[in-house]
Design a protein around this nucleic acid. Sequence first.
DNA 1: CGTAGCCTTGAAGGTGATCAATGTTTGTGG
DNA 2: CCACAAACATTGATCACCTTCAAGGCTACG
Lengths: 231, 231
Amino acid sequence: MALLSANDIVKISEFELFRGIPGNTLKSCLSGASVRTLKHREFLCQAGDLAESFYIVLEGAVKLLRHSPKGEDIIVHFAVQGDVIGALLMNENKNGRFPISSKSMGVSRVVCVPRSTFLSYWKENVQIQSQLHSLLYRRMSNIQDDKTLISSPLKVRIANLLLRHLDQTAETPNQSLMITLTRQEIADSLGVAVESVIRTMKEFHLDGVISRADEKSPEIINIQKLLTYIE
Amino acid sequence: MALLSANDIVKISEFELFRGIPGNTLKSCLSGASVRTLKHREFLCQAGDLAESFYIVLEGAVKLLRHSPKGEDIIVHFAVQGDVIGALLMNENKNGRFPISSKSMGVSRVVCVPRSTFLSYWKENVQIQSQLHSLLYRRMSNIQDDKTLISSPLKVRIANLLLRHLDQTAETPNQSLMITLTRQEIADSLGVAVESVIRTMKEFHLDGVISRADEKSPEIINIQKLLTYIE
DNA sequence: CGTAGCCTTGAAGGTGATCAATGTTTGTGG
DNA sequence: CCACAAACATTGATCACCTTCAAGGCTACG
């Protein structure tokens, strides 16, 4: 836990969440906030924890997990830079508990904002509420997209997942993923067995749809070819 | 299309969405609003329509559909009394289009509120934004629950769906569903084949888990027995 | 250097999809 | 009032996709 550096605040001010928000308002919205650095696989919060603060991802990525009855973990969302975790919960009654766990993917840095700050400054600011709406809208759209594809073959569902995580900044026909996803994580996100993901990805690889510069780096996607799986 | 009756306004004022909202604020929030009566299976809006207004369900129920690539429709949500449809979209850029279709289940009545009213009165009211958040939170929780159960056997997923739609007002051990769901709708909601739902429900019936007073009325659930399928 | 987490491959098995045929109910139009 | 279409329900047979299980390999890390 550490205080926010001036550099961090600049970075935060550039997030879409705070677009058009004056500097002093931003400062209020971050009162009592601290920065937490998470190691690979470290938990940010666990399902059942008292929700005393919520989070903004500064750097890196965090996966949101829910326990399935079988004991496996299902990934409901990959939170990346600028994403907000647990804000919806702040509105609910006091003593609310997280319904999800959050686990860091690689090293990441996260801003922790206390619940009281949400109630005093976030909840009372219509601009911020609207921006939160936009974030939620996108997350809701994604999860609905997934649901729409439930009955599609695994190839299609994986292709869809990969497309969603493309690094939109590059312009080349071959784009890489914004985050490094393991086969296990893809499986957990789609609710299927790892082995099935591995076999499908192998096929993609043989077809030249995906490739990797080296082990450990994110997958590189040939978008044209990938799209043929979806149509 | 008709104007709101005094009776309708009373009913709306009792929705959770407007809890603690003063009468004149409510009136502003409904400026330009009209009531639409929908026949069974009539569309309220179709995917791709210009989102010029959003909706509040007054009576009856409306299902929200998304087209899957195969041409089937997946049900992403059952909207009942007090539910809001399309509000998230109002925040987004002008000329936004509905990503979903809405189709009435039986006869229903819906309040149509113009986008301009949202921007003038809903968006600027922090109380209403918070209430919208709560509604969304619940919808998000539901869809995440569904996702968590993706890899569970069909029995469990159907049991979960039934539990969610119990009529909470009754106290008896046997509760009925709030809305009449056809097997087809259950299948569309879970993204499985109708035949699979029929076979599972038949089994439930033989086990005495569900029963129907008569055809056409909602299913009656023996909760104790149903819960044994989930644990 | 041993453990933990992830990846890989093969073989066997099951759940649910698909296809086909038929029945029931409701609403529509002649 | 009857004929017909549309939407939903049902049942059985067959089959594919994905799961499960088992075994082994690789890399990172304490």
